[in-house]
Amino acid sequence: MTTHQSELIEAARLWAMRVADPAFDAWDELSAWLELSPAHLAAYEAAVEDDEWAAATLAKAQATRDDPHQRRS
């Protein structure tokens, strides 16, 4: 992987992470970053998928724990 690619992945991940904050309000900055290159949108969407996957995976554990009928010994 080139340095450029890994920097892009890192930057996209940072955006996905910041957007997950309920207080996020840098929407114009995000627009500007996405406009720089079509590769930015693709990287951002991949980062969003990673984030949602991790959150959904952990949320399932919490749902199982909260519901006594689902509990396994």
Binding site: A20, D21, P22, A23, D51, A54, A55, T57, L58, A59, K60, A61, Q62
Partner: peptide, 28 residues
């Protein structure tokens, strides 16, 4: 799920706690 839990645990209890607070509880 087990892999996610152990990956987070490996980063230490503070990182684990902060990630869960942020992504599961929706705290900014």
């Amino acid at each position: 799920l087990q892999q996610v839990q152990s990956a987070l645990a490996a980063l230490g209890s503070r990182v684990d706690h902060i990630f869960r607070r942020y992504r599961l509880d929706g705290v900014g």
